[in-house]
Design a protein around this nucleic acid. Sequence first.
DNA 1: GATGATAATGAAAATCTTTTTCAATTATAG
DNA 2: CTATAATTGAAAAAGATTTTCATTATCATC
Lengths: 154, 154
Amino acid sequence: MSASTTPTLEQQWLDQLAQAGYRPTAARRVVIEIVLNTCRALEPLEIFTLARRQHPKLGLVTVYRTLETLEALGLVQRVHQPGGCNIYLRAFEGHQHLLICTACGRAVFFEGDDLSALMERAARQSGFVVHDHWLQLFGTCAECRAAQSAPLPA
Amino acid sequence: MSASTTPTLEQQWLDQLAQAGYRPTAARRVVIEIVLNTCRALEPLEIFTLARRQHPKLGLVTVYRTLETLEALGLVQRVHQPGGCNIYLRAFEGHQHLLICTACGRAVFFEGDDLSALMERAARQSGFVVHDHWLQLFGTCAECRAAQSAPLPA
DNA sequence: GATGATAATGAAAATCTTTTTCAATTATAG
DNA sequence: CTATAATTGAAAAAGATTTTCATTATCATC
């Protein structure tokens, strides 16, 4: 192993936890691994179920607690969807917006922060000072469109 | 009372309920009145508490059911905020976006649908077909800013 | 490596929110 | 008024999340 190997994302997250005074436990490793390897937002219970395959004595409470910690560190974010708002997705750097496939749940990020004109106009109209904004797009991803138009034969 | 009086909003909502086959009951009237007279999104339990002042034997279940019905008719909408996602606000016509005061909860609507360029770009980048979008702004309203800068004397 | 201090865990219980069930009540059409 | 069907409210059930607490795992120090 060369000394200059780039650490994996999982290791980077564990390092961030360590810097913040949290210990790198087996439970946290498993939750982190699942969040990093899934391209859609997951419910705590889903994470728990997946995680138990690798770490059978994991408790659901620990999943809740780990997600809370990761969210506080800005590593995961809570996603809001019509079907529920307690699902978690890894967070990305900078201000990015989400595009979610309503068929499979896949979430992709995109940049596009030319909302300033819109926000200024809203502020002027309303008398508010605008601090923050949420933008989310919903659609169908290429894979799901393909699956719809070419269903598997009986 | 002249025959050409514009019906109140409450009456318009009750008419819409009637057209959809729902009966104008006391419970529904009270819930509607509260939603129409509040400028911020309310939780079911808040509506229940307020409504019981006028209609003491109202049940919380009925509040849930009434909100569900009003949402199905497009008269109220569920609002998503960092502090919770089960709060309801009257819906407005057309596609409008919300601006919410993070201090007092006041919600105002604004139009501003020049997001098409942004959505097209996101679609191109991602390969998604975009169906829908959510945009919400968060800020501080004029009243809350005034209250912050001029606190009441001891 | 041992060891003591402290963080973290998991099971159970407690809390809260929302939904379901069902008998009693209320509104409506006739 | 009366029959019919929708609506209601109370209680119970179901789910999701949080709290409690004894046990276990990690870390810094020896």
